[in-house]
C-alpha cells in the first residue's frame, strides 16, 4: 500500500480516536502538534491502528516513532 494511502487511513483513525473530524495530519506531525494527542490517547491510536491494519507492533517499534511518518513507515513494512 502506498504511504499516502496509509496516511489517509491513519488520519481517519486519528480523527475517530481523538474525536476531531477536522484534524489534518501529515508525515511530519508529532504529538505536540495535536492538542488531543496525549499518552492515553496514544494507546488508543496504536490499538486503533493495529486493529485497522491487522498488525501487531512491539513496544520497541512504537517507542522509536518520532512522527506520523515513522508510524506510516512501520505500517507499510508490516502489511
Amino acid at each position: 500500500m502506498e504511504k499516502e494511502r496509509i496516511l489517509a487511513e491513519v488520519q481517519d483513525i486519528f480523527r475517530d480516536v481523538l474525536d476531531n473530524d477536522d484534524l489534518e495530519i501529515n508525515f511530519n506531525t508529532v504529538a505536540d502538534d495535536v492538542d488531543e494527542w496525549d499518552s492515553l490517547s496514544h494507546i488508543q491510536l496504536v490499538v486503533g491502528i493495529e486493529k485497522h491494519f491487522g498488525l501487531h507492533f512491539t513496544s520497541q517499534q512504537i517507542t522509536k516513532w518520532k512522527d506520523v511518518g515513522a508510524m506510516c513507515d512501520d505500517i507499510a513494512t508490516s502489511i
Binding site: I43, V46, V47, E50, H56, F57, T58, S59, Q61, I62
Partner: peptide, 12 residues
C-alpha cells in the same frame, strides 16, 4: 470474563 485480545505494544 475472558481475554479477547492482547496489545503487547501498549500493554493493553
Amino acid at each position: 470474563l475472558t481475554v479477547e485480545k492482547i496489545y503487547e505494544s501498549v500493554n493493553v
